[in-house]
Nucleic acid binder design. Sequence first.
DNA 1: ATTCTCTTTTGCAGTGATTCCATAATGGAA
DNA 2: TTCCATTATGGAATCACTGCAAAAGAGAAT
Lengths: 337, 337
Amino acid sequence: MNIKEVARLAKVSTATVSRTINGSNKVTPETANRVRKAIEALRYYPNTNARALGSGRSSLYGLIISDITNPFFPELVKSFEDIAVQHGQEVLVANTNYDPHRTEICVGRMLQRKVDGVAIMTSEMDKHLIEEFSHRNIPLAFLDTATPQKGISNIRVNYAAGIDAAVEYLLGLGHTAIGFIAGPTSLSSARIRKRAFLNIMKRKGIQVDDRFLEQGNHRTDGGHEAMLRLLNQSQRPTAVIASNDLTAIGAMGAIFEHGLRIPQDISLIGFDDIELCAFTQPALTTVRLSRQEIAKLAFRTLYNTHQLENWDGAEYVVQPVLVVRKSTGPVPEKRWS
Amino acid sequence: MNIKEVARLAKVSTATVSRTINGSNKVTPETANRVRKAIEALRYYPNTNARALGSGRSSLYGLIISDITNPFFPELVKSFEDIAVQHGQEVLVANTNYDPHRTEICVGRMLQRKVDGVAIMTSEMDKHLIEEFSHRNIPLAFLDTATPQKGISNIRVNYAAGIDAAVEYLLGLGHTAIGFIAGPTSLSSARIRKRAFLNIMKRKGIQVDDRFLEQGNHRTDGGHEAMLRLLNQSQRPTAVIASNDLTAIGAMGAIFEHGLRIPQDISLIGFDDIELCAFTQPALTTVRLSRQEIAKLAFRTLYNTHQLENWDGAEYVVQPVLVVRKSTGPVPEKRWS
DNA sequence: ATTCTCTTTTGCAGTGATTCCATAATGGAA
DNA sequence: TTCCATTATGGAATCACTGCAAAAGAGAAT
């Protein structure tokens, strides 16, 4: 079942079959119909490899992430795949597992497959590997880690806006004793969030008690321990913002252990809005960083660059939004008495 | 930078370059060395499309899952990819989103790419789509949903063994009032787990109170509500087994809301051992269904079928194991007084 | 009837590897 | 030295499709 058999059955040339498949308008409807019938009869699927070889277009887009088991990524992968399929394109997912060697292998794979573009959604990536792509005119899209240039786009996350929204919401509820559990200092996105928190508090003229600043590791265990440290002090915050949702979920456990209630005794806000947030008890108020939006922007810019040959990279900005659920409430009365 | 340029630079024919790349023993070490140097000098990567076209082997394996955002799958995807990369193969992941139409598109994609094998890790798949694969001699691996036959392997999960282990462990702790929160009846794996629970209880000669049997939806909200129903009764179980981890995590919230402690007042066991279990407070005792093991078996059987042309499908059995963490403990004293 | 234009269709030359078959080179035995 | 068996290498067909140039029709204009 190759294109020749279809051509023979439909009594046309292979070129006409090819054009029918690709929806060229240069084929008479009757001829096209005859061809389509032959295709169905033979259960024929075009060989993508041959197609890619001939045309140079692989209809494949690479998606490089650090670790699929990090709950931030599955939704990103899903959204990216969704939109790719909508455009008749496919996705090659690669986990780097934070391993430079593995990253190199991933890049090699992508190059071999002649991908039409690559979304690099992991923080670290060697300069020379990036070179390997741009050297071959393969468009790239980064998440917050590149400056736009020829063929390279960047999706910037306005972390500050998200943190600002969280803080302002808490201030509106009357909280002033607000704690913050930061992420690992090695992660630039975590550093940015912490700085944003300190900035907005300063702008609002609120002194941040040093004891209200703790650090986790962006996992639940780190959040749990950090929260325990916060709670074991004489002076406690009435609200806590965590650098990401896993940290917040870990913190929740610590709060319950201390016999405190959320949000009656303490309010809690996360960051990212992973799926699980809606299903914790109580559901977690958080700042949504829409993976769907990131995925869409990343794919679109890659697709357009490749399709329209518009090689000027652009910068897109994603605005996180506050999602209010059940883990935040007004300042406890007793604090004011 | 194609194979011809390499051949020219190394002063050999393209055939020799090809042989060198594929590690044929019919090439003198010196010649091979010269070729390898030329490859490095030109930063040459073979064109996978041309390779697949010529040889008929794509080095691509399909992995069909229902929904990557279901926490059961990311680890499966990761493990499958890991082992595939180890074997120099690649993975095309496809989300069906539980949508038959989407499934059909996924299958089409796989066929077009001439995948060397497909792991179908989703429960439902149309007969005619399966036909589409076996018709083209593409090996398939199923998760618990097929009987082995020519080119088709099955990975069977011994759910009963897992449930048995959980029940026996609870009995050992002195529990006899054991509740069970089942999954949706539409899911065969959920039905099997419930039946396994009833069976082992019967074998142990313990009457199961009908009021201790509840049903969720395999998500946290369903677990939460089911647990509330269990707790709002006059007679309460001292231990509860949930049909999966998300259900158990939802149940945890309900238990805390009732001011009860885990495991002092009530013991809780989940099923699957998703990543999050280790990080709940307290960490959830659960039955591990190793996704790594499933992924390895699935890949190996596909790879071997394709490589060794051993077309007799096999059945592999995965044994779940109990992972004891902090959510289970001895029966509360007061119950015996 | 002939020429010209325009559209549809066809034939053919790539596309980059693999692989079979033929041939050249090498080395050992006669 | 010659012959033969190995073994390494080259040449060319092949894979399934695309894209271009050219041919073949179908009308319209002359």
